[in-house]
């Protein structure tokens, strides 16, 4: 398997608060990585760093072997290759679902609505949103909004998808429809990194689970190992609390 993304000794702090404390992580092409850990353990920050929404203080992020964390590098081309979906959806409320999805490809790749139409329609259909294209975000349920947000990221045809606790803001009965989307993406071979509190789901889909604690990856391994036989006490404590 090809190495797609590699984090080397990533450090990040906000003021005096250290959030990432030397993180090493390798992600191979087509893999699904689940980051688990308590709130504030650094999962979200790590994803935002990979997407270059935050600058790292120290260390390196390699995408296909090229350092994307170099100071002064233009973040836009990198972001076009790495999609991110947020816990709070962050759809643009003044645009319909289909406009939300088309905006970036139109502006970044200079494509017209007509050129994008077939591809975008396929995406909406695939995720059960065909009749929701003309709806505004506040006319959609949380689950639908989050699926539109995923479609919006996919429309840029990213090589990696980062998913930041994307089911945490959803009502329990809506979680399933969003997780189904992720299962589909995984089947199609998308490389994904999820920060998640859905332990059952992580166990089901993850090729590798990383337990983050106080800004470091305390333990990582295949799902069966982390959930079945965790080595570290803190991992065991955490899993006992959430399972």
């Amino acid at each position: 398997m090809n190495e797609k993304l590699r984090l080397k000794n990533v450090h990040k702090s906000f003021g005096a608060q250290k959030v990432c404390h030397g993180i090493d992580l390798t992600v191979n092409e087509g893999e699904t990585i689940c980051l688990i850990g308590a709130s504030g353990s650094g999962k979200s920050t790590l994803l935002r760093c990979i997407n270059l929404l935050e600058d790292i203080d120290e260390g390196m992020i390699l995408l296909d072997g090229a350092d994307i964390s170099k100071p002064g590098l233009d973040p836009q081309p990198v972001r076009q290759r790495i999609g991110i979906v947020f816990q709070s959806f962050n759809l643009f409320p003044h645009m319909t679902a289909v406009e939300n999805v088309m905006l970036a490809p139109r502006r970044v790749h200079g494509l017209s609505r007509a050129e994008l139409r077939p591809r975008v329609e396929t995406l909406f259909e695939r995720f059960g949103l065909a009749d929701r294209m003309q709806s505004y975000p506040d006319q959609l349920s949380g689950g639908q909004q989050q699926r539109v947000a995923i479609v919006r990221a996919l429309a840029m045809e990213p090589e990696i998808m980062l998913l930041d606790e994307i089911t945490s803001a959803l009502d329990p009965e809506l979680v399933g429809e969003v997780l189904d989307v992720l299962r589909q993406l995984r089947q199609q071979g998308m490389t994904m990194i999820l920060a998640t509190h859905e332990m059952k789901f992580a166990r089901e889909v993850a090729d590798k689970v990383c337990f983050l604690d106080k800004g470091v990856i305390l333990e990582e391994g295949p799902a069966e190992q982390i959930f079945g036989a965790p080595e570290k006490n803190r991992t065991r404590d955490f899993l006992r609390r959430v399972l």
Binding site: R48, R79, Q80, G83, L103, A104, V108, R152, A153, M156
Partner: peptide, 9 residues
């Protein structure tokens, strides 16, 4: 953030 993450200028 959401807009920037899509690669918009």
């Amino acid at each position: 953030s959401a807009a920037a993450s899509l690669g918009l200028s």
